[in-house]
Amino acid sequence: MKLSAAQMNLLRQTSLFYAVPETTIEKIAASDDCEIKQYEKFSLVYGKTEFSRSLGIVLFGNLRVTKGNAGGHAMIMSTLGPGSIFGAAALFNDETEYATDITALGESEIVFFSQRLVGRMMRFEPQIADNYVKYLSERILFLNKKIYLLSSGTAEQRLASFLLDNVPEGSMSELPMPLNMLSLALNVSRASLYRAFDSLTQDGVIEKEGKKVCINNAERLKKYMR
């Protein structure tokens, strides 16, 4: 399937295709095992039993990644925007269930690279194999940090992690869930959550207006997670 010039430019900027020759990317994008799909708002992209053994890259729109916790509540793991990669959890294994639910937050467009194509990509272009290993390593670090913060982190650490994963820097954006649901997702009391918001606001790293939050300084906010 032929990608537009803008879509090709986006692929070149992703971590998967870092330092990969442009001609190689063009050949990959022209493969029959490369497919573009469109999704409507709130439609399921990947679910427990609805997924494909493919690597996806978001071309347009935003996706929400959630996972149910022991209490039956959907815990938001991250928000994926243009250039984000997903699908590695099911790419090279025989599991019959996908680990998370991925939902389109609005009209979205995604390019999928099949398992067979990804295998060929890594065999014939070592740089892609290196990039993929680095991507997996970063995902392991991300998930390890998530586990630590949600099990042992303070309310400020949990909130900082959530905001960095789900709120863009520099613009006032509505929180993806009500505060009562957020307190359940982060496994903290509502009082602790309110105090965490107050602490981050007083420190100047975020601003909060009702249901909307703006990250003023992402680098300073990351320091709360250490």
Rank of each mutant, 00 (worst) to 15 (best):
G106Y: 12
V111C: 01
Q202Y: 09
L193Y: 07
A129W: 05
L182D: 04
A89F: 14
K41N: 07
Q115D: 07
S4K: 11
R120G: 14
G68S: 14
A5W: 11
A6F: 05
A185F: 03
I76V: 13
T96W: 02
L55Y: 00
M75P: 12
C214R: 15
G72E: 13
F60D: 15
S108G: 06
L200W: 07
M75N: 15
L105E: 12
E50Y: 13
R64Q: 12
F113S: 02
Q127I: 14
E207D: 07
N180G: 02
G204M: 10
D32S: 11
L3A: 03
G87H: 11
L163Y: 04
K2Y: 06
G170F: 00
N69S: 09
K211Y: 05
G47N: 07
N217G: 00
N131S: 04
Y224L: 03
L55Q: 03
P126Y: 09
R116K: 15
K208H: 06
T96E: 04
Y224H: 06
E174S: 07
K222Q: 11
D33F: 06
R220F: 03
V20Y: 07
K223C: 08
D165F: 04
I85L: 01
G204N: 12
A90C: 12
V133N: 03
A70N: 13
K146C: 06
S43I: 04
G87V: 07
